[in-house]
């Protein structure tokens, strides 16, 4: 390995280490079966911590995230389905807690603005491409003729 690669390797190790550190924020959870533990972790990753703006319930160390993890665990143990757990949290903390916001009139802009932007870009591109090239001027024609002569 050359010396030049060392900073890169350091960066990869640093960034790669972040999820490991984040996962350790989850409280010890003694699940009987592995399937329930996986479900628990998958659900926690779906919810956004209300206090921390951009951390999931799985990774946040905020006290409210601890409370919400306990709530998810309680609902899970009570045999609630994934959808009813989602609905439970949404009823209390609003759409904000869902990383995957529902499709409804108030979120149309959020869902469709990328599509709209792509459409506008497509129209602009099409117009630019289709625009006829201006007729060459007399000087340009003369230059072209000279070039052709050189090639031949």
């Amino acid at each position: 390995m050359t010396r030049a690669l060392i900073p890169l390797v350091r960066l990869v190790l640093l960034v790669g280490g972040v999820p490991v550190l984040a996962a350790s924020a989850i409280d010890a959870f003694g699940f009987e079966d592995a399937q329930a533990a996986t479900r628990y972790q998958r659900l926690l990753a779906e919810f956004r911590c209300p206090k921390c703006l951009n951390e999931s319930l799985a990774s946040s160390g905020a006290p409210i995230a601890v409370d919400l993890r306990r709530t998810v665990r309680r609902l899970l143990d009570a045999g609630e389905s994934d959808d009813s757990i989602r609905a439970h949290l949404q009823a209390r903390y609003g759409d904000f807690v869902l990383y995957d916001p529902p499709l409804r009139p108030s979120t149309w802009l959020l869902w469709f603005s990328p599509l709209l932007l792509a459409l506008v870009a497509g129209v602009v591109l099409a117009r630019v491409v289709r625009r006829p090239a201006p007729a060459p001027t007399a000087t340009e024609r003369e230059q072209a003729r000279q070039l052709m002569q050189k090639i031949q």
Binding site: K51, P63, I64, D67, R92, G94
Partner: peptide, 13 residues
């Protein structure tokens, strides 16, 4: 004491 009513109320601080 453990914040369960807080969760019911959507309290985050």
């Amino acid at each position: 004491s453990n914040g369960d009513l807080g969760v019911e109320l959507g309290v985050y601080g």
